[in-house]
Design a protein around this nucleic acid. Structure first.
Lengths: 258, 258
DNA sequence: TTTTTAATTAACAAATTGTTTATTGTTAAT
DNA sequence: ATTAACAATAAACAATTTGTTAATTAAAAA
């Protein structure tokens, strides 16, 4: 093999190179649907899409015109795909410290009719406050939030149906198996606020039950009760606040209960 | 944004394109260290590396010569990175149906001195039988298996230290949170064989304890007892055999015990 | 003052786990 | 033939955690 390997490794010119390298971002947000006073919120997980213009900048018919797509752009040769995602999103939203995670590469030949273009896909979590603002201020009819329950029914550009489907699966997993939920919550949150975030992606009865969840939250090693502070955001009665502790959690499926 | 977006999306020529797109593979295997008769095995998780040649095919000094590296090669324009990984590995090993999973993209500017080369990284699980054979038959001094405990101490080519470190973390997670362990085991396996696989990546006392693990395995929904078949591979006494059932498992960290 | 409601505690049966001790069935040694 | 050794696993039981239902608390609203 070492010969074959050597050839492969060094004869760059023999191989066609890609026509483009893009970074695409599935922007997720959670909006509180009912936000009445003294009530725990009801939340829905949404993804932001842009509507592709009918005509391009030179007035010609656009590729995949009028379809919904995830935002993205070309990666520059002095940055990583991750940095490109971060740059584009922070330029766009004027928010820094956005949670972004790379989750997949999309490189199927023919996926983009314009050439051999490799997409590095990310998901991001953006506070709903920004996105509502953004939409109002811009009157941008070409931006919309879609519930993850509906989004896959749309007519989506390129292979974005695949990408979005994967993104939804990845964020669902991450919400349940990491502490990424903290990016949807204030620094200090009540048990019912965390519960509302998790309900957007699970029906687990142990999470749905108020009694079980409010008891369980006290014994989770990655969540700490905030001493001496309460809120009445979700209830007339003062409610305890919790905060996430930074740590890795790895619970084997072999030791869980079923 | 729709204007800026439009520009980015359509003006392909404005952007430099990558000089190469490669598919790299971290090949893992588990070797049974002590394989005495009637004893449960002791296993070690290993990664296969190749030693880069000192000179290239034209007799010139090689880049990153004599360093250890993960195998890989250029992706062709009619295949995906995943297919390239599969193709290379199956060509190489003559085994089909190898478990391969994409886990990361490595695209940091300067990571490869030969140009802007994007690496799509995968891990694969290959039976130890092949790799031992391969090594003996070829007398290939340029191929070696390294324990995951030692491999990061080596002098590794390019950014392969990063890639291998990530691969180890990903396979550790997958071994504990998915049923990927089945790729290291025969179709029907004993509790102590599964236990030995898991021990290569965890110290969890509930997995280490024979009594607990042999009791627990009976109640796991993704494992089924094989009726009417036993083995004496691991014990003088006939031992029950189990098999994995295909299913997704998603256990929230919020419902686990700590 | 009473009603309403979210948060929380209480209480208890049911299920699971940690742990220790015994049993089983075989091989290998005496 | 007997016994020692040993992996597998069953038995037993206390400790812990869960599911579930009921009760309590505190503040707004009627």
């Amino acid at each position: 093999m070492s010969n074959k390997q050597a050839l492969k490794q060094y004869d760059i010119k023999k191989y066609r190179t890609p026509d483009g390298y893009t970074s695409d971002i599935c922007v997720f947000t959670i909006i509180s649907e009912k936000n009445e006073a003294y009530k725990p919120p009801t939340m829905d997980l949404k993804i932001m899409l842009i509507k592709r213009a009918g005509l391009d900048s030179e007035g010609n018919m656009n590729i995949e015109a009028n379809k919904w797509a995830i935002p993205g752009g070309f990666v520059q040769d002095d940055e990583t795909g991750f940095q490109a995602a971060k740059r584009e999103l922070e330029e766009e939203t004027n928010i820094s410290g956005i949670h972004i995670k790379q989750f997949g590469v999309y490189d199927k030949p023919g996926r983009d009719p314009r050439g051999w273009i490799i997409s590095n896909a990310h998901y991001a979590i953006v506070p709903d406050t920004y996105l509502s603002l953004r939409k109002a201020q811009d009157d941008a009819a070409d931006i919309e939030l879609f519930s993850i329950k509906d989004v896959l029914k749309l007519d989506l550009a390129f292979d974005h149906e695949q990408i979005i489907g994967d993104a939804i699966q990845v964020i669902t997993n991450d919400l349940l198996q990491t502490t990424v939920a903290k990016n949807f919550l204030p620094e200090n949150f009540t048990y019912s606020e965390l519960q509302a975030v998790l309900r957007t992606v699970t029906d687990d009865p142990a999470i749905l039950s108020d009694q079980s969840f409010s008891r369980k939250i006290k014994s989770l090693p990655f969540i700490q009760e905030v001493q001496g502070k309460t809120t009445t955001r979700t209830s007339k009665r003062a409610t305890k606040l919790y905060t996430f502790i930074e740590m890795d959690i790895l619970k084997p499926i072999y030791t869980a209960r079923y």
